[in-house]
Nucleic acid binder design. Structure first.
Length: 924
RNA sequence: GGGCGCUUAGCUCAGUUGGUUAGAGCGUCUCGCUUACACCGAGAAGGUCGGGGGUUCGAGUCCCUCAGCGCCCACCA
């Protein structure tokens, strides 16, 4: 392999599709231990993730990119550790979203509405649409590098999962945990369906508060005196007594069935038990007393509309008030609205108010800010309405789900979300699961003409109660989240005890965004515990949401949306993945910018070029000099300091990464590998390797070390950036094939390689620290020389002579003379290293690094004055450190801090003292 | 009304058992096409870790408090 064969810049465009196809074709995404295959071992614990199924209608967005990046990392890491690993992919039928999209599509292409087509035909068309476009999103998920087992791909509306939904419904129904009945629910007038509490969003908006008069009807028992209250009392025109009331939705006046006041309210006490007259309709309704009413707020009197307000509904229940609905399914006024029947809710609001004004019933209007309930989907204002719907009796399920997290069977990462989870489940209300849609799992309940309900695992032929064969299935479908809630086990075959279900369930991690903790995660836990008796996963990992670079929400109106497909086209998948993984911290939102992705595109290119260098180096070895195998964690006696140092650093890195992965600190781990690769390996070791390779004695061990360290880095980075690492590794493998030291990239995680595959005696305790400390001195010397060169504007190509006085470090420095010379731009022949020096060289600039003195004879460039100033500044800094440390060591620190910490500070102090002495000598 | 998060270099952010002189990327400044990489290399400037108090030998890190920003939950018309 020659250098010319590898392009100078990493070509992700041609690499990514080729590599992905290779993985998929090689069966690499399938678990190696498979219950459906011969040789299956049930005793090996697998690692399993169910994908958060994207909507079939979905277009790839950064949320998808995020979960794929994190989950693929988890999956690849475990796979490399040798664990049988399964990532189950699939997609969600997404009831409302898909139905709306297909409706829009049909209207545009065929100018036909859903109603015109009829239910059966519309559902058929939607399936057509799904077959045609449903694969787009999964293709896009593949582009992200997701190593899912595509042979196990599922869809929430396919036969198996539909059967699971049916089974779940019937079980709950039979246990009495599902019921049907009229309740106050959230109604979406545009979509004409009920929605659950979670699908309603409350936004603060400017509204109007309308004040008006509730006139008292003449009382049989005359009120003694007029009110003492400020607002209640006689109307100005002597029109009679009234109670002032305020509302935001005047149209609901038509459905009022009472006016409520606080029992202790002196202003209104006397009216309790009397009647007031509903404006424009003339109905008489009672004035009631209820402690719910706040005397301080508004007028202190509250109109009660049980049909369209949850609070009023509750009050009505307490007082046995009638409930009047005034809106139809499109939120127009219905027959109970008298003259206003047929008007839109907002038209009616205006007209009714105008009429009331004409009738002298209006007091005033006032601008008012309040929270308005809007549909999460359409954005329209949701109306609370009485409607007959299906509900899940949630308390028993919630209780079990609460318990599972409280007793640790399920752990949520980051932990603070456990509190959020508890709070939600403790205050949960019954879940409205029926939707007035056509696309979804139809409710498996049939009605006979007498109204009996029949359900079952098979479609019934006759009524279970009366035997009638005249059956009509419930027209509604189930909430999309009902089927999603079964996902971890329905995808594995439940309700059948399939081999997959037995082996792969419960799954391991549930990884998703915190925004669907309630929608999805909590429901999976509730339904999983109910149907399988087990928690569907033992760990919930929640990632944050992605915002633009200044923390704003991405939206089309701001024009700040970053399209992952574009980013992948321009900068590569690995760059995007690495950015999402390293920039984020569990459960915290992250701000993304293309600039960050660019920086990581550069990192991918860095890997590529370091890889190219190493491969080239391997090729430069004679074919007959084999690379030694089996070297474990240790270092050979003949290794140079740099060889030992980089290996020592790598050991530390592997341990740190392992620890961070165990704690879900993926971002931190990625950052550490990045730093090691770029700074330690590329900037230092590779540069030294260039010099070591020129020496026949050290050439082979250097190439070996380059190859080993690169190999380990590729493995560590593979879960983050799978494509570029796989590609480099492929080239690396073909470069060393005849020399055979490397095995298989995607199979072994470094820690396993070190502890198991290369078991050799460890070096003496502390060798790593010693090597790191020694090398740090060399780095310091090189840096200070470079620094001085830059300061003096010495031409970079100019080789300088130098004299180094090493004292106790002389042997070490002598052994590193060539390294120092190469990296600091010194002339190797003119570099003198000695233990001590009688007299300091004339006209040389002096540097002090710890106890080491360096003299650079910069003929003609030395400015005695500025040199002196530089050394004096250093001395001052050193002495301030000495003072600080002496004070510290004289304090309670010395007696109370742990011994090793104190020892460390003492060492530092003596080092500073030595430096100070050298500096003083220079200044004499 | 409850609960949570954030506040660290010009910008975006790391910093999890409290322990050197607080880090990275981008941006800025000075050099440089040294045979892996200009998607690069070398060097530099830049921070009272939001304010105040406390615990401790020692606090960006733990506790209290205040302020600003953001999010979630919640039925005051």
């Amino acid at each position: 392999m020659t250098r010319h064969e590898l392009p100078k810049a990493y070509d992700f465009k041609s690499t990514e599709p080729r590599v992905y196809a290779m993985w998929e074709a090689g069966g690499y995404f399938k678990p190696w231990n498979d219950p459906n295959q011969p040789g299956f071992d049930p005793n090996v614990e697998p690692f399993v993730i169910s994908i958060p199924p994207p909507n079939v209608t979905g277009e790839l967005h950064l949320g998808h990119a995020m979960f794929v990046a994190v989950e693929d990392l988890m999956i690849r890491y475990h796979r490399m550790k040798g664990v049988p690993t399964l990532w189950v992919p699939g997609s969600d039928h997404a009831g409302i979203a898909t139905q709306l999209m297909v409706e829009r599509h049909l209207l545009k292409t065929e100018e036909v509405t859903r109603e015109e087509l009829g239910r059966e035909e519309f559902v058929r068309r939607t399936w057509d649409w799904k077959h045609k476009y449903g694969g787009i999103i999964t293709e896009q998920i593949r582009r992200l590098g997701a190593s899912c087992d595509w042979s196990r791909e599922r869809f929430t509306l396919d036969d198996g999962l539909s059967r699971a939904v049916r089974e779940a419904f019937v079980c709950l129904y039979e246990k009495g945990l599902i019921y049907r009945g009229p309740r106050l629910i959230n109604w979406s007038p545009g979509l004409r369906t009920a929605v659950s509490d979670l699908e309603v969003e409350y936004e603060e908006e400017e509204a109007t508060l309308y004040y008006f008069k509730y006139m008292l009807s003449p009382s049989p028992v005359r009120a003694e005196r007029s009110a003492s209250g400020d607002e209640a009392g006689r109307g100005d025109g002597g029109e009679g007594e009234y109670i002032p009331v305020a509302t935001i939705r005047p149209e609901t006046i038509l459905g009022d069935t009472a006016v409520a006041v606080h029992p202790d309210d002196e202003r209104y006490k006397k009216y309790i038990g009397r009647k007031v007259i509903v404006p424009m309709l003339g109905r008489e309704i009672p004035v009631i007393a209820d402690e719910y009413v706040s005397m301080e707020f508004g007028t202190g009197a509250l109109k009660i509309t049980p049909g369209h307000d949850p609070n009023d509904y509750a009050i009505a229940q307490r007082h046995n008030l009638p409930i009047i609905s005034v809106l139809d399914e499109a939120a127009r006024i219905n027959e109970n609205g008298g003259p206003y029947q047929g008007q839109d809710r907002f038209d009616c609001r205006e007209k009714l108010w105008a009429d009331m004004k004409a009738a002298g019933l209006v007091i005033k209007t006032q601008p008012y800010t309040t929270t308005i309930p809007r549909s999460q989907r359409g954005g329209e204002i949701v109306e609370p309405m009485i409607s007959t719907q299906w509900f899940v009796r949630i308390e028993p399920l919630a209780k079990a789900a609460l318990e599972a997290v409280k007793d640790g069977r399920i752990k949520i990462v980051p932990e603070r979300f456990e509190k959020v989870y508890f709070n939600w489940l403790e205050n949960i209300k019954d879940w409205c699961i029926s939707r007035q849609l056509w696309w979804g799992h139809r409710i498996p309940v049939w009605y006979c003409p007498d109204g009996h309900m029949t359900t079952g695992r098979e479609d019934p032929v006759k009524c279970g109660a009366c035997g009638s064969t005249d059956l009509m299935q419930d027209p509604d479908v189930l909430d999309t989240w009902f089927s999603s809630g079964l996902w971890p086990f329905s995808t594995l075959g439940w309700p059948d005890e399939t081999p997959d279900l037995k082996y792969f369930y419960p799954t391991s991690y549930m990884e998703t965004g915190y925004d669907i903790l309630f929608f999805w995660v909590a429901r999976m836990i509730m339904l999983g515990l109910e149907f399988t008796g087990e928690a569907p996963f033992h760990t919930v990992y929640l990632h944050g949401l992605i915002r633009d670079e200044h923390g704003r929400k991405m939206s089309k109106t701001y024009q700040n949306v970053i399209d992952p497909l574009t980013v992948m086209d321009e900068l590569g998948t690995d760059a995007l993945r690495f950015t999402l993984l390293v920039g984020a911290t569990p459960g915290n939102d992250m701000n993304l910018s293309v600039k960050k992705v660019e920086a990581n595109r550069n990192f991918a290119n860095k890997m590529w070029n370091a890889g190219r260098f190493v491969i080239n180096a391997i090729s430069s070895l004679t074919p007959h000099s084999p690379l030694p195998a089996g070297e474990g964690t240790g270092v050979r006696a003949d290794y140079t300091l740099a060889d030992s140092w980089i290996w020592a650093r790598l050991q530390g890195l592997i341990r740190d990464v392992e620890r961070l992965f165990q704690n879900f600190q993926y971002g931190q781990a990625g950052q550490m590998i990045y730093d090691f690769f770029w700074s330690d390996f590329a900037d230092w070791y590779v540069e030294i390797a260039k010099q070591q390779m020129q020496n026949e004695e050290t050439k082979e061990q250097t190439v070996t070390t380059l190859a080993r360290v690169l190999d380990m880095c590729l493995r560590l980075l593979h879960p983050f950036t799978p494509f570029v690492t796989e590609e480099i590794w492929g080239h690396l493998r073909s470069a060393v094939r005849q020399n055979s030291i490397l095995s298989h990239i995607a199979k072994d995680w470094p820690d396993a390689l070190i502890t198991a595959r290369w078991p050799e005696p460890r070096e003496p305790e502390g060798w790593e620290e010693d090597k790191v400390a020694d090398f740090a001195l060399i780095q310091e010397i090189v840096r200070s020389i470079r620094n001085l060169r830059a300061e003096k504007s010495v031409q970079p190509s100019k080789r300088l002579a130098a004299a180094i006085v090493g004292g106790a470090k002389t042997d070490l420095l002598k052994s590193q003379a060539e390294v120092i010379a190469a990296l600091a731009g010194l002339d190797g022949n003119e570099l003198k290293i000695q233990k001590s020096l009688k007299k300091k060289p004339e006209g040389a600039a002096a540097l002090v690094v710890g106890a080491v003195e360096i003299y650079l004879p910069l003929a003609g460039m030395v400015d005695l004055e500025s040199d002196r100033a530089r050394l004096e500044k250093e001395l001052a800094e050193t002495e301030s450190h000495i003072a600080r440390l002496e004070k510290l060591l004289a304090s309670d620190f010395a007696s109370k801090a742990p011994a090793p910490v104190v020892a460390k500070e003492r060492e530092k102090l003596s080092a500073y003292k030595e430096t100070a002495e050298k500096l003083k000598a220079q200044l004499k």
